[in-house]
Design a protein around this nucleic acid. Structure first.
Lengths: 214, 214
DNA sequence: GCTTGTGAACGAATTCACAGCT
DNA sequence: AGCTGTGAATTCGTTCACAAGC
């Protein structure tokens, strides 16, 4: 297979799930897994697992399966999560606070190294070992601390301005938790997470099954 | 167009974004919008907006555009969010607490009517007007309160058991915020939200641009 | 014999381009 | 003249089915 071809986005979006399953397999002392087992653990199908993995290299052994440790290393390398990525959180409301306390991020190599808010009452207070800074300091602090990813956890109205500030500070990757569309330069990657959107999709599903029942 | 054909999933996933933009347009007193304006506000493209909307009906006027109020009504009806949907939260950690305090959910018609946790220290305490209940009461309370959607905000280890309980209580739609794959019956819809997954995808993007720079 | 890796077939989603209506 | 609605063309993603290798 042509290893210079770029990996499809759909595949990239599944790699983190594979990684999670493999770490679980490793915790259970399984030295090897086959594509069926991965598919079952991740809720996918075996052919897709094989095709996805084939995009990142010939990693398996025919007749045997995949070496768990090897695969973990490979996927981690492809995802660029070999070392700790430095992350900043903008918006220290209840959601921002939940992020600071969430152990799942450092466990996966994402270290929150700065928190910002523009509420004077919060600035200067302590947040899980960090001091909340004013949003006017985003520019200088993100550069000083080598932040690569910003998580926006502000209300919708403040999200665009927060994005402008982190982009001005050189950040090229944003995880947006605010229910707002961000307008940023084409070389900045944005991923949107919106609970209300997901709830609305579930709501559609409920409306569908309700209809066919009647 | 055949209105009995089912709406593509990809379209459904964009409808909530359109709805959000339309509500914004309405707040700005705009009576009409055209597909270009919607596309610009949501970060999509005009042809796609038109095709998506055509799946749910002939809603526009050629030469003119779409009536904002009409479209809002139509999309809301398709998404089944005309009335308040009853939602329960399982897991009252920092994330669960952030959900209870998040005004965006009731604003969009999702009312949190119950919270559960299995930590004895939390049971019985007050959570934004609700009392935290033990997870052993999920079965009875979800039925009593007419809950249709469950949000799982437990640690990964507890997620499957939480899912089993809410499914046993008749819930057919789950929003899973725990980093774990849920195994549920085929007639239960699950949507997975995972911040670490999204961060890993952003990390891949950073690794890519870093590579081509060198 | 068992499992990977992968062309080929299939299906889904996006984009194009223009006819049809106001 | 302007904008929608939609077949047709294209691109992208998934699934199949089997040859290749252990």
């Amino acid at each position: 297979m042509d290893r210079n071809a770029q990996i499809p986005l759909a595949t990239i979006q599944r790699l983190p799930a594979y990684l999670r399953c493999l770490l679980q397999a490793q915790a259970q002392q399984m030295p090897l897994v086959n594509s069926n087992q991965i598919a079952e653990m991740c809720g996918g199908n075996a052919a897709q697992v094989r095709k996805d993995l084939s995009y990142i290299g010939e990693l398996g052994t025919r007749g045997i399966g995949y070496d768990v440790g090897d695969l973990i290393g490979h996927i981690s390398r492809v995802l660029g999560i070999v070392e700790g990525r430095r992350v900043a959180v903008v918006g220290y409301g209840r959601l921002g606070s939940a992020l600071l306390g969430y152990s799942g991020l450092p466990e996966r190599g994402f270290d929150i190294v700065a928190v910002f808010d523009n509420d004077a009452a919060k600035i200067g207070t302590s947040a899980d070992g960090l001091i909340v800074l004013g949003t006017d300091r985003i520019g200088s602090e993100l550069r000083d601390r080598g932040v690569e990813i910003a998580i926006i956890a502000t209300p919708a109205e403040a999200a665009q301005e927060a994005a402008n500030k982190v982009v001005a500070a050189g950040v090229k990757a944003i995880l947006n938790l605010a229910p707002a569309v961000l307008n940023v330069a084409a070389d900045v990657a944005v991923r949107q997470v919106s609970l209300s959107t997901d709830l609305q999709i579930l709501s559609f599903y409920l409306a569908q099954v309700g209809k066919s029942d009647s």
